[in-house]
Design a protein around this nucleic acid. Structure first.
Length: 526
DNA sequence: AAAAAAC
């Protein structure tokens, strides 16, 4: 293609030897957007990156990262982007979406240089973490090019960002709030921005960003190329696409609200007060590399994270109330494996791409069924088996039903050894009583999927804990009732030595025997 | 109901 220096061997600055080793996701840096470097047998049939029309420096970076075959969205989108067409991509993260725009953007931009305060391209992301992830993508694939990029996000010094902009950037990666702020202060000109990416449009919509996006789009020249990505194509999204795009090439690579078949799921109904203990059992039982634990509330993220740390787990918290520097450093520590468990709000439910994530736990049933799909979609990537287990309380039947309706399949019920399994309460909500709990919940006795009832141990009929009257918690035990203040950590169950998880001794579920690196995730504490 | 995003 165009004339670029075929950098002989520029700083392989990456911390890891940039060897051709295909170690895709152990890398942690999450360019895992591009799955499966080497497909064993049938790879002849697959397209190659080298056929996509990317020039040498970019191809070299791809090679060095060990990727040979583009994913479907990459194979389909890249040629059109290079042609200058608008693209409407319906794809979720994990399908290789990010690289499907970063790679051709690098190609297009590599022809010329940036001018002061006039970014040549703009990428809009709904969260700061996603913005960072895209920036990493540019670092990885652009390492043999001399292009510059800047991250324009809230929570960090504006002075610094301004300075970078003043020097001129090729790629500006931004969250809407800060971008508009800076624009209104006159620190930014978008008149020369001819390439616009609107990523995660459905999420932008959910988050109420659309007016901001419209405002931003109006700052740009109509003579621009626009790439628009969304995980779903609801009518509202379609309307937006019609508004922003010009004769787009439409590419769809995944159906919305589908649960990847590589994810083994399970759900346990337990008392609210037992959740932390139940989670610990699951964390210890599972032979996992790393896990994300989702909570519905920021406050609960903090409480749970502290609790886990207190119990000897390697855990960190992530939600929007934490300082930006902490957010990034926690995420980085998790990606590098320094932290094994990331406890977070829905900030990380979508888009965040962490290579080789083995487990997702829903400490709370998400309020919206689609969020369930997004959350558990963090695992089971790139053809690898992932595990997603959910803890529900007896009054959450409706939420679970909504999920099962959306995904079209029931979540197999599991039991957790040593933790009492309850049933759905008849009462709509929070109203005391429940059906007399029976063991071996009739709810969904026979897992209809291939043995997903992994951590369940049917034999565990000896569930010790005598049934306590649920909801008796009102006064004591730090009941969730009042307590708006961060609940004291001592609300934890006394560190009564959890009984060793039984049931894995003689009957180890098949998925746990899959080859994984043998480091044990969790300090076998206590 | 909750979460995210600007100062």
């Amino acid at each position: 293609m165009s004339a670029k220096k075929t950098s002989s061997a520029p700083a392989r600055s990456a911390k890891k030897a940039a060897a051709p080793a295909p170690a895709a996701s152990t890398d942690g840096v999450a360019p895992t957007d591009i799955p499966t470097p080497e497909a064993p047998a049938e790879q002849d049939a697959l397209p190659l990156f080298s056929e996509l029309g990317l020039s040498e420096p970019i191809q070299q970076a791809i090679d060095e990262m060990g990727y040979r075959h583009p994913t479907p969205i990459q194979a389909q989108a890249i040629p059109y982007v290079l042609m200058g067409r608008d693209v409407l991509g319906v794809a979720q993260t994990g399908t290789g979406k990010t690289a499907s725009f970063t790679l051709p953007m690098l190609e297009i931009l590599s022809g010329s240089r940036a001018r002061a305060r006039m970014p040549r391209s703009l990428i809009l992301e709904p969260t700061r973490e996603l913005a960072l992830q895209v920036a990493e993508n540019f670092v990885n694939y652009g390492k043999h090019l001399k292009l510059t990029h800047a991250l324009l996000i809230g929570g960090e010094s504006m002075a610094e960002q301004k300075e970078v902009l003043n020097r001129g950037v090729d790629v500006l990666i931004a969250t809407p709030g800060r971008l508009i702020d800076l624009f209104e202060r006159g620190g930014l000109l978008l008149t020369q921005t001819r390439l616009l990416v609107i990523d995660e449009a459905d999420r932008m919509l959910d988050m109420g960003f659309i007016p901001d996006i419209e405002k931003i789009v109006n700052m740009l020249s109509p003579l621009r190329q626009t790439l628009f990505f969304s995980a779903t194509m609801a009518p509202e999204i379609r309307r937006l696409a019609d508004m922003f795009l010009n004769n787009p090439k439409e590419i769809t690579v995944s159906r919305p609200s589908s649960v990847a078949s590589t994810i083994v799921t399970g759900l346990a109904i337990v008392d609210a007060k037992e959740k932390r203990r139940a989670l610990r059992k699951l964390l210890r039982a599972a032979d996992m590399q790393n896990a994300i634990v989702f909570c519905n509330r920021k406050r609960d993220v903090d409480v749970l994270c502290k609790s886990l740390i207190k119990h000897g787990f390697s855990a960190g918290a992530l939600h929007g109330d934490l300082a930006q520097s902490l957010r990034f450093s926690t995420l980085e520590a998790f990606k590098t494996g320094e932290l094994k468990i990331l406890v977070c709000s829905d900030i990380a439910a979508r888009g965040i791409d962490i290579g080789g994530l083995s487990h997702v736990f829903n400490f709370d049933v998400p309020f919206h069924a689609e969020d369930y799909v997004h959350r558990i979609g963090r695992t089971g990537r790139a053809g690898r088996t992932g595990h997603a287990y959910t803890l529900a309380t007896p009054d959450e039947e409706a939420l679970v039903q909504a999920i099962e309706k959306l995904t079209g399949k029931p979540i197999p019920r599991i039991e957790i050894p040593g933790v009492e399994t309850l049933e759905w309460s008849d009462e709509p909500r929070g109203n005391g009583r429940r059906k007399p709990a029976r063991k071996g919940s009739a709810a969904t006795p026979a897992p209809q999927q291939e043995a997903p009832a992994a951590p369940a141990v049917a034999a565990e009929d000896a569930t010790p804990a005598p049934r306590k009257p649920r909801r008796a918690q009102g006064g004591t035990a730090g009941g969730p009732s009042a307590a708006p203040s961060p609940r004291r950590d001592s609300g934890l169950l006394p560190a009564a030595p959890d009984q060793p998880v039984t049931g894995f001794g003689s009957d180890v579920p098949a998925f746990m025997q899959l080859p994984r690196r043998e480091k044990s995730v969790i300090p076998a504490n206590e």
